[in-house]
């Protein structure tokens, strides 16, 4: 009986080791989606007019992108959809487009201190 028990424990241990953790399809999809979202956000943040506005406010692109990078997948998705909504609105309000976009970005990544310092 004891032997049987011991064998069971050994087997359980072995099963844990041998249970290969392949990368599941869901994980693949979400990591690809994250990468694509990051690329789209980067392309917006790297725009010349946006960069200019950011530097006027004393914020570097790196700070913004680092913050975006730290977001969870769902935060990132929400950020991106808000950003694209902002861009749609920005088209209609072309005059203040870049300023608006920058304020939006800063608001979304939580660099709110900027408003106190200016």
């Amino acid at each position: 009986m004891f032997n049987y028990l011991a064998l069971t424990i050994v087997c359980m241990g072995f099963v844990q080791v041998s249970h290969a953790e392949v990368i599941g399809t869901e994980q693949l999809i979400s990591s690809e989606a994250r990468e694509a979202a990051m690329t789209r956000i980067e392309s917006i943040v790297m725009r010349d007019d946006v960069r200019q506005q950011l530097s006027n406010l004393g914020v570097s692109q790196e700070v913004v992108l680092a913050r975006v990078d730290r977001m969870t997948d769902s935060e990132l998705a929400s950020f991106e959809s808000s950003l694209s909504q902002g861009i749609v609105g920005g088209d209609a309000l072309a005059v203040i487009g870049a300023v608006f976009l920058v304020l939006l970005i800063l608001e979304l990544v939580g660099v709110t201190d900027i408003f106190k310092s200016i």
Binding site: L104, E107, G110
Partner: peptide
């Protein structure tokens, strides 16, 4: 879903 940009929404609504 909770939005972290409520304040932005307000600003945006005024403008747009």
């Amino acid at each position: 879903p909770a939005h972290s940009h409520i304040r932005w929404r307000t600003v945006f609504t005024v403008f747009a």
